[in-house]
Simulated assay, not measured.
Amino acid sequence: MRIGVIAIQGNVEEHVIAIENALRRAGLQAEVIKIKHKGLVDSCDALILPGGESTTLGRLLEREGIADEIKKAASAGIPIMGTCAGLVLLAKHGDDQVEKTGQPLLGIMDIHVNRNAFGRQRESFETLIGFNGFDTPFNAIFIRAPGITGCTNDVEILSKYKDSIVAARQKNILALAFHPELTDDYRIHHYFLKMIG
């Protein structure tokens, strides 16, 4: 098994460490690779799109030719997890900010996204949230976080905070508004590993 972490920008190292720890705890073997250029996505059984600055990330993915590879992987049923900016990129529909900046979206999940649902960097926070299927709350870290403001019936809502959906799944796509890789709680990475099968 091979898991690819898109390594163009953002919390790359933290995701690599988190998924390696989750694999170890689950007693699973997998190679975790960093993807910086096209030609590697095809060799992966799962992909992680980390946080970062979504406009920059979207443009770099297009420029490097990785965006099309991710879209192809998504339609082939490859599990993909997007966190924070990764969630924004997964969306089919963005808010005014997305329109204004000409933010490129991958458009692989039937969600509407508000790019700065929880304010700016200085308004970052952490809070306990319920997560569908978890016995106890998850300590979610929100950093200039987006939120899902709407979705189709095909999308399973996994967690809400205030008026926003902050975790959702549509078939093989998992979108998170927060940063599970910044905690020592690997339940969400385990959840993702189960999606790989």
Rank of each mutant, 00 (worst) to 15 (best):
93 H>R: 14
81 M>E: 03
68 D>H: 03
108 I>P: 08
75 S>G: 00
91 A>D: 10
102 G>L: 05
95 D>N: 14
73 A>G: 06
86 G>R: 02
75 S>Q: 14
99 E>I: 14
89 L>H: 08
94 G>Y: 04
104 P>C: 07
108 I>V: 15
110 D>C: 01
93 H>I: 12
71 K>C: 05
107 G>E: 12
69 E>A: 09
94 G>A: 10
84 C>N: 08
71 K>W: 00
90 L>H: 08
97 Q>E: 15
108 I>A: 06
85 A>W: 11
92 K>E: 13
101 T>L: 15
97 Q>R: 14
110 D>Y: 01
79 P>S: 08
100 K>M: 10
92 K>G: 07
73 A>I: 04
81 M>V: 13
90 L>I: 01
106 L>H: 04
86 G>A: 05
91 A>P: 12
105 L>N: 04
101 T>W: 05
76 A>W: 01
87 L>D: 13
76 A>I: 00
85 A>P: 10
93 H>V: 13
89 L>Q: 08
75 S>M: 05
106 L>T: 06
70 I>Q: 05
90 L>Y: 09
109 M>D: 02
92 K>M: 05
72 K>T: 15
87 L>I: 03
104 P>S: 10
78 I>H: 01
101 T>N: 15
81 M>F: 03
85 A>G: 12
78 I>N: 01
79 P>F: 01
76 A>Q: 14
86 G>D: 03
104 P>E: 10
82 G>I: 13
106 L>C: 04
100 K>T: 14
91 A>Y: 05
81 M>I: 14
93 H>E: 12
69 E>C: 08
84 C>M: 12
100 K>H: 06
74 A>I: 12
92 K>C: 01
94 G>K: 13
71 K>M: 03
88 V>D: 03
80 I>D: 03
73 A>H: 05
106 L>G: 04
94 G>S: 12
105 L>Q: 04
98 V>E: 02
92 K>R: 14
102 G>F: 02
68 D>R: 13
108 I>M: 08
85 A>M: 09
95 D>H: 05
92 K>F: 00
73 A>L: 01
108 I>H: 11
69 E>G: 06
91 A>H: 09
75 S>H: 08
81 M>N: 03
83 T>R: 08
97 Q>P: 00
94 G>D: 11
68 D>Y: 01
105 L>I: 09
101 T>E: 13
105 L>W: 07
109 M>L: 07
93 H>Q: 11
101 T>R: 15
95 D>Y: 02
97 Q>L: 10
80 I>S: 06
85 A>N: 13
91 A>Q: 09
89 L>E: 10
78 I>R: 09
109 M>A: 12
79 P>D: 09
95 D>I: 02
79 P>L: 08
105 L>S: 07
85 A>R: 11
71 K>E: 06
106 L>W: 01
109 M>G: 09
90 L>T: 02
87 L>R: 11
